[in-house]
Design a binder for these strands. Structure first.
Lengths: 141, 141
DNA sequence: ATTAATGCAAACACTTTGCAATGGA
DNA sequence: TCCATTGCAAAGTGTTTGCATTAAT
């Protein structure tokens, strides 16, 4: 099975969390994960979610995002990518972008940069469409 | 006086906070601000710090940063700039960078981007120097 | 005189911890 | 069997809120 080599004991709880996370691009919080997995697994506790996330983070199988001012979000996509935060609906959307952004030239010597992460603040496709429709509507009136 | 046009009542507490923030590049947390200002102003309460920060944020005089996983940090520099988080000493350092980073070309139509913020993860000048010294030391041994 | 701001304490939200019981390896 | 993991509850942070008092305008 695909999770065999994680170096973690594969409890049913962990499998349920891993399955929920697999390919998930919704950047769920611990609470989000708990709610979902709790359905199929009523005995699951929130502490277990936190402990599993912590273990996965250490193993490098999950990224802890600090894009939400209220709570940590988790991302099973550990490949380098960026995020757009929709200022309207607050959705967090993956934005491809492999290479690390470069520091301004004159600073390159002073710092060592290992990775970078870009937060775009704007409108997601859905909210952009709505805003455009609203704007056109106001022209007609 | 320079804070007259904020549209806020200028209480001594607020003046003390504004003065502490003026030109400050340390990205302090609410607690940091409280501790400092509490010295010269023993009656100052933490709730007042939070309420003042909230008012300043609304007025656009302070930025609330979400770069620290543990707490919010505040930045009186509201001009567009980026940040480097030193993975060694955890310091947050301003990195110039005016223009908004561009989205990947093929996504430009779907999204609307108003601003962007780059987080660089690496070593600050001081920690880079230390790391280099240590490395050279190990060559000699 | 009005009305917003203060300070305190209580409430809240998120996350971590201690520990006995459980169950993978 | 052994030791990591679970679930629960309690505790720990950071932040917000309610409210009577105070003070800026």
């Amino acid at each position: 099975m695909k999770y065999r080599n994680l170096g973690l004991k594969l409890t049913p709880q962990r499998l349920a969390i891993l399955e929920y996370l697999e390919g998930n691009t919704s950047h769920p919080s611990a609470e989000d994960i708990y709610r979902k997995v709790h359905n199929e697994f009523p005995t699951m506790s929130l502490a277990t979610v936190y402990s599993t996330l912590s273990a996965l983070k250490v193993k490098g199988n999950v990224l802890e995002l600090t894009v939400d001012p209220d709570k940590k979000r988790y991302d099973p996509n550990t490949n380098m990518h960026n995020h757009l935060i929709c200022i309207q609906c607050k959705t967090i959307i993956d934005i491809p972008g492999a290479g690390s952004v470069a520091l301004p030239e004159d600073l390159g010597q002073d710092f060592a940069v290992f990775k970078s992460h870009v937060e775009f603040y704007g409108l997601c496709p859905s909210c952009k469409k709505k805003a455009k429709a609203k704007e056109e509507d106001s022209h007609v009136r």
